[in-house]
Amino acid sequence: MDIENSKKQMRKGVLEFCILAIISQGEIYPSDILRKLKDAKLIVVEGTLYPLLTRLKNAGLLGYSWKESTSGPPRKYYNLTTEGEAFLQELKGTWEELAHAVGFATKNIQLS
């Protein structure tokens, strides 16, 4: 059993939720999303973000607009659609349940 793989799968499971959560705080472009995710050690290689964003966008959860940048190529600023907002709320509910359950489960492990 590969411990790295398990860790990665665990991070991946919450990645979608985290990205939606980051975008819900206001318009943001991928490089800034990456910075936050990297700080949180949620992402290892940057490339994984882009297919995810495209998929969320194609699912109607995200919208975006192009903005010129003074220091580089034009940037794609993502925002949450109403649908995305609802989706995020639902995920948040699930996450809280999960966190509670995980907390409960791990408490038992620590006890043993």
């Binding site: 991928p30 490089s31 882009y50 966008k57 190529p73």
Partner: peptide, 29 residues
């Protein structure tokens, strides 16, 4: 290789395009 990797995926060209923008940003730096 990325193009072939995403071949058949919805929005493949967009993904590649986004990645190219990111690479451009890093190069710019």
């Amino acid at each position: 290789a990325l193009q072939r990797q995403f071949e058949g995926t919805e929005g493949a060209d967009e993904i590649i395009g986004d990645i190219e923008y990111r690479i451009a940003e890093i190069f710019q730096e």
